[in-house]
Amino acid sequence: MINWLTESEALHYSEPLQKRFGMADDWLGEHRLLRFGSRRIYMANRHLQLPEFQDDTEIEGIGISLLRVHSQAVPKPTFEGSAYLLQHASKNVLALTTEEAELARSATPFSLADERAESLERGFILMHLHGVSFGCATFKDATVTSYFPKRYSHYNAMPLT
């Protein structure tokens, strides 16, 4: 069942993200949030309109998976959602070195030197290597722990250059 979120429901998810990652008020652009299933929030073009299917048509999905719903104050971006957020974020973003990226994709925690750690706040951060999204991680006590998805683990065979 697809449920478009009301404005206040959407703010419950979008506002903490906006503050966390320093995005402009209109970061959702032409998108709206919706719930499809119990644990995830999706983002879809706001102009999408579903017909009222009278036949046995089944709706498999709509839009892209943006967030996982947890108990944390800031919802956890999905790997795919992180790539969208990265395009709009202005803080709590970490530009990885190649060595750090290798650690991130094997989900091995790594430490940051003081000057780089100072620019990040404790909690979720977004990561990228030369502009390509690496998903999100938690940052705590100057240590980064990546949530790089296991489903992409076979990509570990390829060097990052």
């Binding site: 999408l48 048509t57 999905g61 795919e80």
Partner: peptide, 15 residues
């Protein structure tokens, strides 16, 4: 594919 590519203007259906 749609999730990976950030494509938010697609409704997928089975019919």
């Amino acid at each position: 594919t749609l999730n990976r590519m950030g494509i938010a203007n697609v409704i997928s259906t089975v019919q």
